[in-house]
Amino acid sequence: MSGELFVFGLGYSARAFVERARGRYRRIGGTVRTAEKAAALRAEGIAAVVFDGGAPSPAVTAALRTATHLLVSVAPGAADPVLAAHGEAIAAAPALEAIVYLSTVGVYGDHGGGWVDEATPPAPKSVRSIERVAAETAWTALGRATGVPVALLRLAGIYGPRRNALADLAAGTARRLVKPGQVFNRIHVEDIAAAIDAAFAARADGPVNVCDDAPSAPQDVVAFAAGLMGVPPPPETDFATADLSPMARSFYGENKRVSNRRLREHLGVDLAHPSYREGLTALWRSGRWRG
């Protein structure tokens, strides 16, 4: 075992990487938002501390002094909360070798269903994607100033145990919204963990799209999941007249096909779930779709 991993935001994707990487770091620590979550993770051997995105945490500052690998999985607001509170401590971290920042393919904006890759200039539409571009820029600047490589992993729609169309069908919340020509890329959380692993190993720098091989219509995903379960799919609903929250509707305002060529060829990641078909089938057969 060598090195120390520190994670800002021990949420769904970051936890998948931590489980994959256990045993390869002499110490794994990170942040959560409540004392209860911190206590639960400490019982699992993870040195979790509380950071709510506000004032700097002395415990975090202390952990950064010995961290060799930094994973950042905290959504920005008007400013990046991690950099606002701990940017100076990160820049001064003496042992830091690599940073991986989890971003989103939303930074590309809308391309009318056309293909984008890492050479495509960001053109965000939503406020949250505009904030992501600003955060990417700030983390890149920190890397340039310190000489530490910063990989910007741009994630597609995340699914995996507990968070998938099978679970939505079982809960009665699945919908087959139809907007002609609309497609999305997706990514299984286990493949996100593999991408983080590869980015650290390669000391990757700059953007990498982390997505599947098969941008697909969202209603097809629900229909496929229903077929696995042997239940009728919910009826199709016209997106134009559907009752949706502004947040849900905004996701459909961006339509693109995202290339993962750099992930495969430069980082050498062989996706375990190259499309939703393999991903959902594995979840169903293993029973892990429930969690």
Results as ranks from 00 to 15, higher is better:
224 F>A: 05
117 D>A: 08
151 A>H: 07
74 V>E: 00
260 N>E: 08
117 D>Q: 09
276 Y>N: 04
137 T>C: 09
281 T>V: 07
120 T>A: 02
226 A>P: 08
92 A>T: 00
88 E>H: 13
125 K>F: 09
230 G>S: 03
114 G>T: 03
226 A>F: 05
19 E>R: 15
262 R>V: 04
129 S>D: 14
210 V>Q: 07
259 S>A: 12
167 A>V: 01
38 A>C: 00
113 G>I: 05
233 P>A: 15
156 A>N: 11
153 L>I: 00
261 R>L: 09
235 P>Q: 12
167 A>E: 03
284 W>N: 03
220 D>K: 15
59 A>M: 02
190 E>N: 07
57 S>T: 04
153 L>N: 01
281 T>E: 14
58 P>A: 11
160 G>T: 03
46 I>Y: 12
42 R>P: 04
140 T>W: 14
236 E>F: 09
128 R>S: 09
281 T>K: 15
193 A>S: 01
71 L>N: 01
234 P>L: 07
170 A>V: 05
102 L>Y: 09
202 A>D: 03
159 Y>K: 01
172 G>A: 11
158 I>W: 11
163 R>Y: 13
170 A>D: 14
146 T>D: 10
28 I>W: 05
66 T>M: 11
87 G>R: 02
195 A>S: 14
151 A>E: 05
1 M>S: 15
35 A>K: 14
44 E>Q: 15
274 P>L: 14
185 N>C: 08
59 A>C: 07
225 A>W: 07
105 V>M: 11
48 A>T: 11
264 R>F: 06
211 C>V: 11
13 S>P: 09
155 L>T: 06
185 N>A: 01
13 S>R: 04
70 L>I: 04
91 A>S: 11
122 P>Q: 03
8 F>P: 01
254 E>S: 10
145 A>P: 00
76 P>K: 01
187 I>T: 04
126 S>Y: 07
254 E>C: 06
43 A>R: 15
